[in-house]
C-alpha cells in the first residue's frame, strides 16, 4: 500500500530576498525513514522548519497526511512530532512536567501515552528530575518522548545525534528504526554525516545550496563500484586484472584502484590469490559525502 505521509511540492523560501530553498520536491511514504543529507548551510534546517510550522514557505505546498500545512495547520501539525536542532526543553521543570505540559497542548494525550513514550525512550528512572540536571543524552531522549506523546505519523528529526556519545547514537538509532518498523511511523532525519544516514535510513534526499540534487536508495547511491586492492607486485597485478577481467586498474600509492561490478569481487579475489599475489587488503569503497557531492554536482553540470 503506497501511502504518502509527507510531500513537498515546489517549495521555495526566501529570507531577505535571498532564495534559501529553491523549488524542492520530495515525499515520504508510511514507515519510511528518509535521510536528508547535505553540508552545513545547504538548507536542511530551513526545510525542516517549514515542515514543522516554525517557518513559512514563500511558495509551494507542504502536505502532511493529506492536510496542507498552510491551509489546515492544526490538522497537519497534529500528525507531526519534531526535534529541531537540539532537544531544548524547560530546564526549570522536571522531565515529566515538560511532557505533561506539552501533552496538554494536544487533544487527548493521556498519562498512559506519556508514560509509554517515557518507557520507549528509557527515561523511567530520571523522569521526575529537573531537566537542568540531565545529560545531553537524556535531554535527547526526553526530546524524542516529547515528539512522540501525541502519536504522530511523521517524525522530523534535525541532526538528532549531534552531541551524543557513540553509545547514545547507537541507542537513538535503534529506537528510530524500531519506530519505523513496528509503529509504522515515517521519519525524516537530517544529517551531515553520511555514515549515520547509511545506518538509519532507507532512502536519502541530498540537498545542496537549497536544491535537491538527488533522491535515491541509500545503498545504491553510496556504492560507487570503486574497489581498491593492496597487493604486492602492483604492476603485475594490474596487468593480470586487465588481461583476465578487462579491468582498467590504476596504481595509486600502494594500491590498485578500479571500477568493477561489485558482485564479481569474490571471483576476482579468489583468482588473484590463486595466481600467487599476496593480497593484503581489499575494500569496496563507499563514497564520502564530499565525493558524493562532487560527483553529483558534476553530473548536474553535464546534464
Amino acid at each position: 500500500m503506497k501511502d504518502t505521509i509527507l510531500s513537498l511540492q515546489a517549495v521555495s523560501k526566501k529570507i531577505n530576498d535571498k532564495e534559501i530553498i529553491k523549488d524542492i520536491d520530495f515525499s515520504i511514504q508510511r514507515g519510511e525513514v528518509l535521510g536528508f543529507l547535505g553540508p552545513n548551510g545547504a538548507g536542511k534546517s530551513t526545510t525542516l522548519r517549514m515542515i514543522v510550522g516554525l517557518s513559512r514557505p514563500t511558495s509551494g505546498e507542504i502536505i502532511v497526511s493529506g492536510h496542507s500545512i498552510q491551509k489546515d495547520y492544526v490538522k497537519a501539525m497534529s500528525k507531526v512530532g519534531a526535534i529541531i536542532e537540539g532537544p531544548d526543553l524547560y530546564d526549570y521543570m522536571t522531565g515529566y512536567k515538560n511532557l505533561e505540559m506539552l501533552g496538554a497542548m494536544s487533544s487527548n494525550v493521556t498519562v498512559k501515552d506519556i508514560m509509554s513514550a517515557v518507557e520507549l525512550v528509557g527515561m523511567e528512572h530520571r523522569i521526575h528530575d529537573k531537566v537542568g540536571t540531565y545529560s545531553m543524552g537524556m535531554k535527547q531522549r526526553l526530546g524524542l518522548a516529547q515528539a512522540l506523546i501525541h502519536q504522530p505519523e511523521l517524525l522530523v528529526l534535525d541532526e538528532p545525534t549531534n552531541g551524543l556519545d557513540p553509545q547514545g547514537i547507537y541507542e537513538f538509532r535503534e529506537i528510530i528504526k524500531n519506530l519505523a518498523t513496528e509503529k509504522n511511523i515515517s521519519v525524516l532525519v537530517s544529517s551531515h554525516l553520511i555514515a549515520e544516514v547509511q545506518l538509519m535510513c532507507d532512502n536519502v534526499s541530498i540537498i545542496n545550496q537549497g536544491e535537491i540534487i538527488k533522491n535515491a536508495n541509500v545503498h545504491e547511491l553510496l556504492s560507487t563500484g570503486e574497489v581498491f586492492w593492496v597487493v604486492d607486485r602492483q604492476e603485475e597485478a594490474c596487468d593480470f586484472l586487465n588481461e583476465r577481467y578487462h579491468i582498467q586498474g590504476k596504481c595509486v600509492d600502494n594500491r590498485i584502484e578500479a571500477v568493477v561490478d561489485v558482485s564479481k569481487l569474490e571471483v576476482i579475489n579468489a583468482s588473484l590469490i590463486h595466481a600467487g599475489f599476496k593480497l593484503q587488503y581489499i575494500s569496496a569503497k563507499n563514497k564520502t559525502l564530499e565525493e558524493l557531492f562532487l560527483s553529483l554536482t558534476n553530473q548536474q553540470g553535464i546534464m
Binding site: 492544526v74 490538522k75 501539525m77 507531526v80 519534531a82 536542532e85 531544548d88 506539552l102 494536544s106
Partner: peptide
Amino acid sequence: SNRTIKVLLTRAIP
C-alpha cells in the same frame, strides 16, 4: 533565548 519556542510552536495549535 532558551530555544523552547520550538517545542511550543510545533504543536497542533495556531
